[in-house]
Amino acid sequence: MADNVDDANDMAELHLAAVLAKAKPSLPPLTGHCFYCHAATPERFCDADCRDDFERDQRRTLMRKRG
C-alpha cells in the first residue's frame, strides 16, 4: 500500500520526466548529412553556424506552437 511519500515521489518523477523531455530536443539519428544545410558530414551538423541556425529554428517553431 502506497503512502503519501510514495505518491509524492511518483508525482515528482513524472514532473521531472516531463521537464526533461521538453528541455532536451530530440535529434534525428545520424544520416551522414547536416540536419540544417544537408551537406555531407559524419556529424549532425557541418559547423557551429548550422547547429546554431537549426536550434534557432527549432525554438521559433516551439514558440509558434505555444502561441
Rank of each mutant, 00 (worst) to 15 (best):
Y36L: 05
A12R: 09
R51W: 02
P42Q: 05
N4Q: 14
V19P: 00
V5K: 10
L30D: 03
A48Y: 09
M1T: 14
D7R: 15
A17V: 02
R56S: 09
L30A: 07
D6H: 12
Y36M: 05
D52S: 13
A21V: 03
L27E: 06
N9A: 15
C50F: 01
A40H: 15
H38F: 13
E13F: 08
E55F: 14
D7M: 13
V19H: 03
A23C: 08
A39K: 15
H38I: 07
D47L: 02
T31C: 02
M63Y: 14
A48C: 06
L16A: 07
R51S: 01
R56F: 07
H38N: 13
D47C: 09
A23I: 04
D52R: 13
A2R: 14
A40D: 12
A2E: 11
T41D: 00
A48E: 09
A21D: 05
D6V: 08
H33F: 12
A40M: 12
G32N: 03
P42E: 04
R64T: 11
A8N: 06
E55L: 13
D7C: 10
F54T: 00
K65E: 03
K22I: 02
T31H: 04
A2M: 11
A12V: 05
P42G: 08
M1W: 13
L27S: 05
T41V: 05
G67F: 03
H15Q: 12
F45V: 00
L14T: 13
G67Q: 04
D49K: 15
R56V: 04
K24A: 02
D6G: 10
H33A: 09
P29V: 08
A23G: 08
A17G: 05
D52V: 09
A2S: 14
C37E: 00
T31E: 02
A39Q: 11
P28F: 04
K65M: 07
T61Q: 12
R51T: 01
L20Q: 10
L20E: 08
S26V: 11
P29S: 10
G32F: 00
F54M: 01
N9C: 13
P25M: 00
D7E: 14
V5I: 10
M63Q: 15
R64A: 07
F35S: 05
R44N: 06
M11K: 15
Y36H: 13
A21M: 04
